[in-house]
Amino acid sequence: MSVTTQPTVPLAPDGEPDLTPAKRRGGRMTISRRTNLVGWGFLLPAAGLVTLMSFWPMFRALILSFQSGRGTRMRWADPLWFNYTRLLEDKVFQQTLANTFIYLAIQVPIMLILALILANLLNDRNLRFRGLFRTAIFLPCAVGLVSYALVFRTMFANDGMVNVFLGKLGFDPVPWLNNPTTAKLVIVMGLLWRWTGYNMIFYLAGLQNIDPNTLEAARIDGAGPIRTFLYVTVPQLKPMILLTAIMSTNGTLQLFDESWNLTAGGPGYASMTMSHYLYQVSFQGSPNFGYASAISYVILILVAILALIQMKVGDRRD
């Protein structure tokens, strides 16, 4: 993405175009200053709202994560990092952490590769009903998270559609949601169905920015479609792949709806995600908001670390 938006005017340290000569010609207020102020004026309402609605609660959550106690009887934890050390001993949290990383490690790569392939196929100008296919693949994104999760739960029920179908093919019914492995598998399948089309749209948009000449040149040089895809298309899509990878990682680490509605975290804690556990700690069990805040900060730190790694690996401009 950043490839297409390389600024042509040299930037001053504050990120504004450096228009020093104009500054000197102005009256009491220089043009640059006025532009700056107008810019800030437009930014202010949004920035104020973001601060009030996002950063302030985040700050309060940080404070809360250093407190312990149930319900409203909160006091400073002793030691202050008590909730964080508690995480290290929490078997359930560790299980949910492992579950979340299993989803991440299996689902995100499959989804992104699939989305990339689909985008490439549907970018073919000669393909008939291109619009129809694109819409069909994107459509799951328009479905509410809860409703699709409930449909998946019904489909994978013991006497659900999938087992009936397997029965017709002569297989034994699979207790999809009762088995730790298959329960996770169902969640992964649900996520793939729901999100592949979403990422495909990003790639399709990215593909529009690729100069067809580069593809033609590769073809003339004798590269087959697969080599063209791997060595010409994919490198040019790199910024977009980075973006989707970070977004998907972020989304998967915060996964809640599927865990809650599809499997209810079960059997036991076998398919529960971190966010689901966080909710349980705050609202279902005896409320422990300090601990829940600590969990949310761990999720934040994990998202930040993973995004950083991805940026280091994926955004190497050469």
Binding site: R70, N178, G266, P267, G268, Y269, Q284, G285, S286
Partner: peptide
């Protein structure tokens, strides 16, 4: 008990085993 739901969940996790 005030921790009924925690107890229930802990036992629920033991049942499949």
């Amino acid at each position: 008990g005030a921790y009924y739901y925690e107890a229930r969940d802990a036992v629920a996790a033991a049942i499949p085993k």
